[in-house]
Amino acid sequence: VDCIPTQVERHSQDQVNQKVNELVQFLLVKDQKKIPIKRTDILKNVIWEYKNAYSEIVKKADKILQEVFGLQLVEIDSKRHIYILVNKLLHAEGQHLCRGKEKEKMGLLLVILSFIFMKGNSVKDSTLWEFLHLLRVYPGRQHSVFGDVRKLVTEEFVPGGHPHPLTEPPEFKFQWGPRAEKETSKKDVLNFVAKMQGKEPAFWASQYSEANQGTA
């Protein structure tokens, strides 16, 4: 039997760096729709034969994203290796970074995340729709800004990794998705609720202690 030489692919540093630049581009393009990026997609579309340099390439791409764009590559699922991009700049120019419809959607998203958190981290879908009713947002009816709200929530917010449905029939519940944990925090959301309601965050004792866990 012939001894098959193990094909340890050695790539020059230039080749690896080129892959790094390609990966940065790939991540920026994939982030256009804010859908989390899977390791398998990275391998399939960018890295392929450089598989053995995967972690080196990902690490270097993250470094470039941080150094050049002030962005950070964050793993939101360490088992299946799923990533998102978040902003690393303090006091980023929020008002500039999103426009038109996107901005309005972020408003609705924060309201939904606030509601889920304040209601104890999980709400039945019917409870969420009832709450949105109070804000003149009716699922199943065309909204002047959001169009079909049920579709927006289930087909855009959920795949984006924000609210996350827990499918345990017959109940359908929403809780925070992995992106929510990285893009905002319970503390931030509680501050928002407190500001809206003109109260101190400590007013809601259990939410307050939960929001401050791990940050102290």
Partner: peptide, 17 residues
């Protein structure tokens, strides 16, 4: 080298179109 000011400027320019 890039500073946060450069990154901030780039971020806004990118989203301004």
């Amino acid at each position: 080298h890039m500073t946060n000011a450069h990154r901030r400027f780039l971020q806004v320019l990118m989203s301004n179109r």
